[in-house]
Design a protein around this nucleic acid. Structure first.
Length: 294
DNA sequence: ACGCGGCCCTGGATGC
DNA sequence: TGCATCCAGGGCCGCG
């Protein structure tokens, strides 16, 4: 299930496969993906040179002269150079060097689109994205924290919302919360700045570690080219319900949070509401100090 | 305005 | 063995 690390790895894999490539034509299967290229797009894409690849959040962008061919892997999307046709192959990119790049997606949650560069900035999919913990420099944590504190939702759901922080899906949200010792149900308004800062660093680190390990391979994810990642061997909590915590040997617990399976260690991630509350005078002074310090 | 549940979709696991 | 049911989840939509 591709989150930021997996998408980054697929993008890098595609970069290495596509040296000086030119699209001859693109064909699609009749099956519906979440969004498909239409006939007009397909005719526009003929004879276009691929100038480069970018990753924006969990999207892969094939940079063309005036436009971007957008690919989102959804849950089970993958790219490979066509060897033999397989069930669930949906998009075939015929290159002028004779090779065929093929997009495979059993669950068909993937998306394709063509967006002109001039329209890119206004595209609602890209205009509301939060910061990218892996590539953004000088992230203004204070301002994210201010906006977060005014909301009331489970922190896990908050960090998975691409409007807030991009690239974090269910696996890495669980793992980052474990690393920063925060219970996933903690309300955003109850989290201190210090804990949020710790969480943000944990998110960044877990994403970087996963990239380093080649991503996580759970059932469907494959790198461009087909090899597996091995970050799944380093999970502390994800998918480990009722197993022993690798840190304290307590039992990992699990429960859906906002519709997504969530895992935590109750002793490493105690659920508490410790925060500097705004109501009291004492809290107010601490709050002032907080905003000065950070 | 914002938070949350439902939905899309298929393959694998589980239950009977 | 074979069929039915459930579960996984990224992002969009609609409801309260």
């Amino acid at each position: 299930m591709p989150e930021l690390p997996e998408v980054e790895i697929v993008k890098c894999g595609l970069e290495s496969l596509l040296i000086n490539p030119e699209i001859k034509s693109i064909k699609t299967s009749a099956k519906k993906l979440r969004t498909n290229l239409n006939k007009k797009d397909l005719s526009f894409l003929k004879d276009q040179k691929i100038l480069g690849l970018k990753r924006v959040a969990k999207y892969i962008l094939f940079e063309l002269k005036e436009s971007y061919l957008i690919s989102h892997l959804g849950m089970t999307g993958s790219w490979r150079i066509l060897d033999e046709k397989r069930k669930h192959d949906h998009v075939f990119v015929y290159l002028t060097d004779g090779r065929v790049l093929v997009y495979h997606d059993p669950r068909r949650f993937g998306q394709f689109d063509l967006v002109f560069k001039k329209d890119f900035i206004l595209d609602p999919r890209f205009s509301h994205l939060g910061c990218d913990p892996v590539v953004s420099e000088n992230v203004d944590l204070k301002s994210i924290y201010r906006s977060m504190s005014s909301k009331k939702t489970a922190i896990k759901s908050y960090i998975m919302d691409q409007k807030n922080i991009v690239g974090v899906g269910n696996i890495y949200a669980n793992e980052a919360l474990f690393r920063s010792q925060i219970h996933p149900l903690t309300q955003t308004c109850d989290l201190s700045f210090k804990k949020f800062e710790r969480l943000f660093l944990a998110i960044k680190q877990v994403l970087l570690d996963a990239i380093q390990a080649g991503g996580s391979t759970i059932s469907d994810f494959r790198q461009a080219g087909g090899s597996s990642g091995y970050f799944q061997n380093q999970f502390f909590v994800y998918g480990r319900d009722q197993e022993l915590c690798r840190k304290c040997s307590g039992l990992i617990e699990s429960q859906p949070i906002v519709g997504r399976s969530s895992f935590w260690c109750p002793s490493c991630q105690p659920y508490s509401k410790i925060k500097v509350r705004k109501a009291s005078g004492r809290a107010e002074s601490t709050r002032k100090k907080t905003s000065r310090t950070y």
